[in-house]
């Protein structure tokens, strides 16, 4: 067995090359966003003279849409977690007849294409006046977050030692109090993971934003970019700057909350 002190560095180099290939489009997006307007037909390989005019244009044109996306995504996090946390707790800890049926239902939701949901919601929203509304988008975008959050939190809550919950029960705490005072604080990690992914699901949503909004009043940035491409072919730097701004939350969360992202990605397989 080789045990040289520099063992593994060749693998590191191969790994960096592979990662560079995989992340090249991300680099290219950033690079293109820093080019001056109009000059993009032959963009440089490196932004030697970074030009931030693309970002100025992007913020002017799409700033409001970014705020809309933020509101919708945060709303979806609040809604998804407050629906999912009690359900996950009950499914994890109560011996309920029929809980397997609920779990099966959650698995089946994963097979329902979003276009089916959008198709039916469009007419329902039209009747209820929920088209072009924050509430409508938050409700629709949470279709990705709620099932995911239930699954991730349930599997975590199952691992909480029984004795801790029983001790709280002996002390006279009701089920609701056990949830809020014992289970939720102990499940902080699972809550963060679920919140993070619920945020990203809603933030990245394109189909519901495209189908359930018809005017400019409530316009998430994903649809903003889509229409930007069609409208301003001479402002590619601004389009790409908007794409960078829309990608920023994912990149920031990946760096700051690496552990939670890995846990969430693995939790996806349990689905």
């Amino acid at each position: 067995m080789k045990r040289a002190p520099n063992r593994g560095w060749p693998s590191t180099i191969v790994g960096i090359v592979l990662l560079a290939l995989m992340l090249f489009p991300v680099y290219w997006m950033v690079n293109a966003s820093l080019q001056p307007a109009g000059n993009l037909l032959r963009g440089d390989w490196f932004p030697f003279h970074p030009d931030f005019s693309g970002y100025r244009t992007a913020l002017r044109d799409q700033g409001g849409n970014l705020v809309t996306s933020l509101v919708v995504a945060l709303g979806s996090v609040v809604l998804s977690l407050s629906l999912a946390a009690p359900a996950a707790y009950a499914l994890a800890r109560f011996p309920l007849r029929g809980s397997n049926l609920v779990l099966l239902g959650i698995l089946i939701t994963q097979m329902v294409p979003s276009i089916v949901v959008a198709n039916a919601l469009y007419s329902a929203y039209n009747d209820l006046g929920l088209l072009n509304s924050y509430l409508g988008l938050i409700l629709a975008d949470s279709t990705a977050g709620v099932p995911f959050a239930i699954i991730v939190m349930r599997s975590f809550m199952r691992s909480i030692p029984r004795e801790i919950i029983e001790a709280a029960r002996v002390d006279g705490a009701g089920r609701l109090r056990v949830l809020t005072a014992v289970v939720l604080p102990m499940s902080a990690n699972a809550l963060i993971t679920a919140a993070l992914f619920t945020f990203l699901f809603a933030w990245s949503d394109f189909l519901f934003a495209l189908t359930l909004t018809t005017t400019q009043t409530v316009r998430p940035v994903t649809v903003g970019i889509y229409q930007y491409i069609g409208a301003s072919t001479d402002h590619w730097n601004a389009v790409m700057a908007t794409a960078v701004l829309a990608s920023a939350p994912a990149a920031v969360l990946l760096v700051l909350a690496q552990r939670h992202v890995a846990a969430g990605a693995a939790g996806g397989s349990v689905k």
Partner: peptide, 8 residues
Amino acid sequence: PWLLPLVA
């Protein structure tokens, strides 16, 4: 690549 919005 998996976390980025598909639009971006």
